[in-house]
Write a protein that binds this DNA or RNA. Structure first.
Lengths: 161, 161
DNA sequence: GGTTGATATGTTATACCATAACACTTAGCA
DNA sequence: TGCTAAGTGTTATGGTATAACATATCAACC
């Protein structure tokens, strides 16, 4: 299980390969990767942090891509439906997917201090929830698995830079 | 791992024992179980469903216990802090705790059709998230573990009554 | 090329979720 | 009694999300 978000990495490449994959995926699935949608994904990808819909909207607005809330929410709907982004329910915020391409049940480690978010795969965890689900006859459609706490950089001894 | 919510059970007793436990807990911890707080818990306990803060407020209002939003949110703050209720992040709604007394990391199975919610213990799951957390140096404060789907009564073949 | 239908976008308005801030009351205790 | 802490009443406002309808774009087909 890998987690991306708290370690340093080649972010420029992380962004460009993700965009390229998204592009390819849209061609394959005949989805329209329009200017607003593409730019929205770029904005989310800029940092491994969760952005509110209105934060995204503010940036889109500065760039003349729309100012009314539905603009942002439609873009986010598209990105989350396509699996390019996820909603962090605990923050009412959105984040670019760190494992684009895989059909997955994501789990998140969310730093409440610096708001950075690490995404991990949660298959084993889903198996555990799946156990209870099977026992009760429940059919799982989507899982929300989030841990709120402090990232390595924000521990009490070493406040976030 | 037990899950309460989709099976039939002696609900009157389920309610009264929970209230009694809450009462006792408040005495022990010197917490004030005021009329508003007590009634709010009763309202949440009435069904194994999640209620919005404004749904709760509407009932409180009918009973002359307050009409402004802070009334409901304060009661919910108290109930969640004391562990008498949980917030369902995926629904922005609140539900009475089904395992009152235990200090626990709850997991929820949420039926998107009839809105009923089953609460299960998630210690093992937290252990799994805890694994990633340890690996990355992340300190967990709180976990949000929710599965959205269809309960036994709302499966396609057997629509919810 | 023009028509059609599906999808995307622009825009207004509104609903829902949550909290800040301040005045006032009550309960417990020195 | 009078202090203090906690709870409550109330107004106002901020943050999140969607309904509804008009317009535009584009690909497929004739």
């Amino acid at each position: 299980m890998t987690a991306i978000g708290f370690r340093s990495h080649d972010h420029a490449q992380c962004v460009s390969t993700t965009l390229a994959r998204a592009e390819r995926y849209c061609v394959e699935k005949k989805l329209k990767f329009t200017a607003i949608r593409r730019r929205s994904l770029e904005i989310l990808l800029a940092e491994h942090r969760a952005l509110g819909a209105y934060d995204l909207l503010a940036v889109l607005g500065e760039e003349g891509l729309g100012t009314a809330p539905p603009v942002a929410y439609r873009a986010l709907d598209f990105l989350t439906s396509a699996g390019f982004a996820h909603k962090i329910e605990g923050l009412n915020a959105y984040i670019a997917c760190a494992h684009l391409g895989a059909d997955h049940a994501p789990a998140f480690l969310i730093c409440t201090s610096c708001k950075s978010v690490a995404e991990a795969e949660a298959d084993a965890t889903e198996g555990q929830l799946g156990e209870v689900a099977r026992a009760t006859g429940f059919t799982i459609r989507r899982t929300v698995i989030e841990a709120l706490g402090l990232c390595p950089n924000c521990q009490p001894e070493a406040p976030c830079a």
